[in-house]
């Protein structure tokens, strides 16, 4: 009898962990609806500022003046106009809502990877992912994509495997401090870590690249992943590594339907 109960528990655990992306997303959204009943789901695109009124006022003041990402958007527009990008992306820069997307050859293709694919297809050298030009281009595309609802899909079994890898990464504890991404941004979301309010994972991908005061520059989402890993004393992966692309894939799917609002500013 004891064995039967154990088996049933294990089976239910394994079923819930291997639910499809849409079931995962529904449970993810529901988690935050229950956790923050007074916060509209769409508000989570503003991160910790959806949960902390005082910090929100400071942030809105910063955004309403001359936001520090503005130069990156202007520079990105100039790069877009001078480069082959319009041809690669169907004439419009408002494309961020469809990334990451699945590709049979390359696996998860993020916007940054697609930009480099475009450059290489047109005889230009790929940019380093930490390069300012890459950040500026993605800032311009993010700006042009504002208001578009995220719409990524998981079209086949291979894509599903990448999604599952990203999902496992999100919930696995790492580093000497033994933290998962979900430890801070799901289990402890809304609590304070020293003086900082922990944002909800929902909407985490909507506003990149972002000007972070701590970095004193606009930087990409994967740089934030690296920083998070480093903060818990886990060895970080490279920008645009398979691990981070899969993680971005999972996390973006969790925010499907939410409007894009990048670039923005964070502390």
């Amino acid at each position: 009898m004891k064995h039967l109960v154990t088996l049933a528990l294990l089976a239910s655990l394994s079923l819930s962990a291997s639910a499809g992306p849409e079931e995962d997303r529904a449970a993810f959204v529901q988690f935050f609806e229950k956790r923050f009943p007074s916060v509209a789901v769409e508000e989570h695109i503003n991160g910790a500022y959806a949960l902390d009124e005082d910090k929100r006022k400071q942030w809105e003041a910063l955004e309403s003046g001359f936001p520090p990402y503005e130069d990156a958007v202007f520079d990105g527009e100039a790069l877009w106009d001078d480069g082959p990008y319009a041809d690669c992306f169907g004439g419009s820069a408002a494309v961020k809502q469809s990334y990451p997307m699945w590709d049979e050859q390359q696996g998860v293709v993020t916007l940054e990877l697609a930009l480099n694919n475009c450059r290489e297809a047109n005889g230009e050298e790929a940019l380093n992912y930490a390069d300012y030009d890459m950040v500026a281009l993605s800032a311009y595309i993010a700006f042009e994509s504002r208001g578009q609802a995220i719409n990524v899909d998981v079209p086949n079994d291979q894509a599903m495997a990448a999604y599952e890898e990203g999902k496992a990464f999100y919930y696995q504890r790492r580093g000497q401090l033994n933290f998962a991404c979900s430890s801070c941004h799901l289990e402890m979301a809304g609590n304070k870590l020293r003086s900082e309010r922990l944002s909800a994972a929902l909407g985490h991908v909507t506003h990149w690249p972002t000007y972070r005061a701590k970095w004193d520059e606009v930087g990409p989402l994967h740089k934030r992943f690296m920083e998070c890993n480093d903060q818990v004393k886990a060895k970080a992966f490279d920008l645009q590594s398979v691990e981070y692309r899969n993680l971005e894939y999972f996390l973006t799917y969790m925010s499907n339907g939410l409007p894009l609002n990048g670039p923005t500013t964070r502390k």
Partner: peptide, 8 residues
């Protein structure tokens, strides 16, 4: 162990 942390 990560599977136990996935919201259901």
């Amino acid at each position: 162990a990560w599977q136990s942390r996935v919201p259901k």
